[in-house]
Write a protein that binds this DNA or RNA. Structure first.
Lengths: 213, 213
DNA sequence: TAGATTGTTAATCGATTAACAATC
DNA sequence: TAGATTGTTAATCGATTAACAATC
């Protein structure tokens, strides 16, 4: 586990997790890398190599235990533990995330939502109170929050991120359309939703151009 | 423009677009690949190489015209044109996307939202009528819709995707937590929101483990 | 012209894939 | 044991980076 793990490998882990969860639901007990390979459209060598970055989870002649491998990957990803989360911004995205119910969000406990809009402050969203932004610093002192979800306008994203980081938050999931910088011991995942739409447009165009040729 | 463009290049295009949009807003008129390199944390050679996949947009000794390069990239991505869009599913994500206002969503005109929930059918969201799912097929015959946004439960995602594709939709932006398959002349962009959260958890953990060493 | 910076080729690096010995 | 499949090394492939001639 000391070798540097490439980001490409890390970004495939959630995909393995999802696939194994589906297999588990279907009642599949064991799976070989070549069967996974077919199911996931990945190369079997790549799968074995990816997994072996973290340990030898398989058994020669048998394959992998679905249940066990899923648990190992949950461990690697750190999604077998609980996180206290705050959401900043109760607009569309903030609301959607606050209301989102998905097994993959289990363990991420949304403790509060913050906003500056007095029309929203005090309201309840999915049982979570919307608080005044001015209370954020104090709140972070009292509660141990490890993840902050940014769903603010771009103008204030970095400013809010800094408050979160100073308050001990170690992970920021940023949906503001503006990249945010973290600190030494924190990690920021910048999401740009529209990027996916733009890539979609590109490939639609590419497919069409191809047809016309 | 005949060489195969790698997906890595395509996925960087929206990032260039965002960066150039920001520069334009700031009133910057020209930029060199090395300046972009610093601003975007990319290698300057990579930037020049990426752009040259599509054409020689720069000028020796000068660099690139921000305005022009942005337009070229918009052209390449196909975001200088208009798209008719339908959203399927008026739950959290569907609502959030229907209400989303961002310059990067310009040109994507949401023509209708479909749902099966009778409590939602008939309501208005951001001025867009929520229609009965049963009307979808008919609607697609009447209107020329090129993009479908899937925000349904996973169980019906593929089924709905097939209806969209049969109705002439050529791009699907899928937020259902279940990969969906397209057809020959269509493209599907599968989004798994939670993947980003899981990667975030991984790196939080990684940073922490590192500290403890 | 001299300086700057592109476009593009060549070199390097890293990631993916193939192959196979180890072993259940 | 024989068959299957892993873990891992070696080969390949592609993407990134460096270098530089072309040229504005």
């Amino acid at each position: 586990m000391n070798e540097k793990i490439s980001e490409a490998v890390v970004r495939r882990l959630p995909k393995y997790y999802r696939y194994l969860s589906d297999l588990e639901t279907l009642g599949v007990e064991r799976i070989s890398s070549s069967a996974m390979s077919k199911g996931m459209s990945l190369n079997a060598s790549q799968i074995r190599r990816d997994l072996n970055c973290f340990g030898g989870f398989g058994q020669q002649g048998y394959g992998y235990s679905v249940k066990n491998l899923k648990l190992e990957i949950m461990n690697i990803l750190g999604i077998n533990q609980c996180y206290n989360v705050v959401i900043i911004g109760s607009g569309n995205i903030g609301q959607a995330l606050a209301n989102y119910k998905d097994f993959s969000f289990e363990g991420y406990n949304i403790r509060a939502i913050f906003d500056i809009d007095s029309n929203r402050i005090g309201k309840n969203m999915n049982g979570i109170k919307v608080r005044n932004m001015s209370e954020l610093e104090e709140f972070l002192k009292e509660e141990h929050i490890s993840i902050g979800i940014l769903a603010t306008p771009k103008e204030v994203a970095q400013e809010v991120a800094d408050i979160l980081l100073n308050g001990g938050v170690r992970g920021i999931w940023n949906f503001a359309p503006q990249d945010v910088k973290g600190s030494k011991n924190s990690y920021v995942e910048n999401v740009h939703l529209s990027d996916g739409l733009h890539v979609l447009s590109y490939y639609m165009k590419a497919k069409n151009d191809h047809v016309e040729e």
